[in-house]
């Protein structure tokens, strides 16, 4: 598909459960525009006809019971699903006027603009400094050593890890605690200055204190980045997200401003889920 123009238009019917309610304080530029996205693992369909618009410089939370396809959907946005041989995708995922799934799309360039933080912290087997400096250096974002030092410091400060790590930059990344490792991974992701950061249950492997730190961090980072996070924790979605999408069995049941969705859910299923009747 070579369509350059955004598909978003006024004539189109809003997709199921998408009132496009806008948060007045946030910027409303579109980050991703997803139309009729279907995905199969072999013969099992994991995502069914997804239609959703994701907004820039906001935190969007994807919630739903396990196995509902929220992580799979997240991985469609930077094509991490390519790594699984049996996966087949159909439909349009548009970013910056380009179809992400197009054959011409350079996956590496896409991932350069759409960073990702994983469920389990996965620092590289390198020093803390190198974990952060490696990608920017490879991307030619920095050329001089001084610039590089500066960038590492900025990324670590933005990720709230500088104070804890500044004295042991040369120690291996794995020497940090779990929560610190996850912040290192966030620092690593923001150091390449992406447009979007995808977070796949970033706090599920962490203790409550580390979780709180990372939630604060997400709140600050949305000034600079679009954050799309998957969470199994509804309280977390309510705390950090501007928008929330509720997934169930591979479909988006409801997508709305977080406050609206948690106070007056439009669908029975959503209400049941957020009130804890299943999940």
């Amino acid at each position: 598909m070579n369509s350059q123009a955004p598909v978003m238009n006024e004539q189109q019917e809003p997709a199921v459960g998408q009132p496009y309610t806008r948060n007045d304080k946030a910027s409303h530029d579109l980050s991703f525009s997803v139309r009729d996205l279907n995905l199969w693992y072999g013969k099992n369909q994991a995502l069914k006809n997804l239609n959703i618009d994701l907004f820039q410089k906001n935190v969007t939370a994807l919630i739903g019971p396990s196995g509902c396809g929220k992580s799979t959907f997240l991985r469609c946005l930077n094509r991490m699903n390519d790594l699984i041989p049996s996966v087949r995708t159909e439909g349009l995922v548009e970013m910056d006027g380009r179809d992400v799934n197009a054959a011409k799309m350079d996956v590496v360039a896409l991932r350069r603009r759409v960073g990702m933080v994983f469920q389990k912290p996965n620092p590289f087997p390198k020093s803390i400094y190198e974990n952060v400096a490696y990608a920017p250096r490879m991307h030619d974002l920095v050329s001089r050593k001084a610039d590089q030092d500066e960038l590492v410091e900025k990324a670590l400060r933005d990720a709230g890890l500088w104070e804890e790590a500044k004295d042991k930059l040369q120690e291996p990344g794995t020497s940090l605690s779990g929560g610190q490792q996850q912040r290192l991974c966030i620092a690593r992701a923001i150091a390449v200055q992406p447009d979007v950061i995808l977070m796949d249950e970033p706090t599920s492997a962490l203790d409550p204190i580390s979780t709180a730190t990372i939630e604060d961090l997400m709140d600050r980072l949305k000034q600079q980045f679009t954050i799309i996070t998957v969470t199994h924790n509804m309280q977390q979605a309510a705390r950090v997200a501007d928008y929330t999408a509720f997934f169930h069995l591979g479909e988006i049941i409801e997508y709305n401003d977080t406050k609206v969705m948690f106070s007056t859910p439009a669908k029975k299923k959503t209400e049941d889920y957020i009130s804890g009747r299943y999940g």
Binding site: D96, R98, M105, D106, V108, A109, L110, R112, R113, H139, D140, Q193, P194, D195
Partner: peptide, 13 residues
């Protein structure tokens, strides 16, 4: 952040 896909692809060659 101002990089478009084309700019980046160019650098990636």
């Amino acid at each position: 952040m101002s990089n478009t896909f084309d700019d980046i692809s160019q650098q990636l060659k």
